Simulated scan of single mutants.
Amino acid sequence: MNPPGVIDEQVFAELQDSAGADFVAELVGSFLDDAPALLAALAAAAAYGDADAFRRCAHTVKSNAHTFGATALADAARALEHTPLTDLGADAGPRVAALRGLYDAAAAVLQGRRHA
């Protein structure tokens, strides 16, 4: 079941049509395996003030989420990517935590798609 707005059905269907369901299942598996470490690296970059690493991690999350039609996750990651870490200040940690929540929602849907 896809809660409204978690995965764009059209984007996901187009990906499966163009790449094939089996390959998409592999891509989803890689994303689910890699994203937790990427989100941890994003949080660490925020905590240590590493603006370049923060931007790169946010960019990667954005790009990967966009691939699967995880629009809310992609949009939140894009906002982090384009906001200087110094401007986020104390909001960086809560914004990364919110991003993790969006990832968790998308991951739950994608996990179901992977085994469908």
Rank of each mutant, 00 (worst) to 15 (best):
A41H: 08
F23D: 15
L32P: 10
A46D: 01
L42F: 00
A44M: 03
A41S: 11
A44H: 10
A46F: 00
D50S: 12
G69D: 09
A45I: 05
A53N: 08
V61C: 11
L39W: 05
Q16R: 10
V61N: 03
F54G: 00
L73C: 07
D22Y: 00
L73A: 06
F31C: 02
A25N: 04
A41D: 15
S30G: 09
C57I: 07
A45S: 15
A45E: 08
R55G: 00
R56V: 13
A51T: 08
Y48Q: 10
G20M: 09
L42I: 07
A53L: 08
L32Y: 09
D75W: 01
C57Q: 14
D52A: 15
D33A: 15
F54T: 05
D52E: 15
L42W: 00
V11I: 14
A25T: 04
L39P: 01
S63M: 10
F23G: 02
L27K: 04
C57F: 08
C57G: 05
S63F: 03
A58N: 06
A41C: 05
D52M: 09
D17L: 13
D17A: 14
F54E: 01
A35E: 14
S30L: 15
L73D: 01
R56C: 03
V11A: 11
D75L: 12
Q16V: 12
R55Y: 05
C57T: 02
N64D: 13
E26T: 13
L73S: 02
A40N: 11
S63E: 01
L27D: 06
L15D: 12
C57S: 14
V24Q: 03
F12T: 04
L15C: 12
L32R: 10
L39A: 04
S63Y: 10
F23S: 11
L38R: 15
R56P: 12
E14W: 05
A21L: 07
K62D: 04
A45P: 02
A70C: 12
A35K: 07
D75P: 09
A40T: 15
L32E: 13
A35P: 12
A35V: 14
D75A: 15
A37S: 12
S18K: 11
A74H: 05
V24M: 07
L42E: 00
A45G: 08
A47Q: 15
D22V: 03
H59T: 06
A25Y: 01
G69F: 12
A37N: 11
P36M: 03
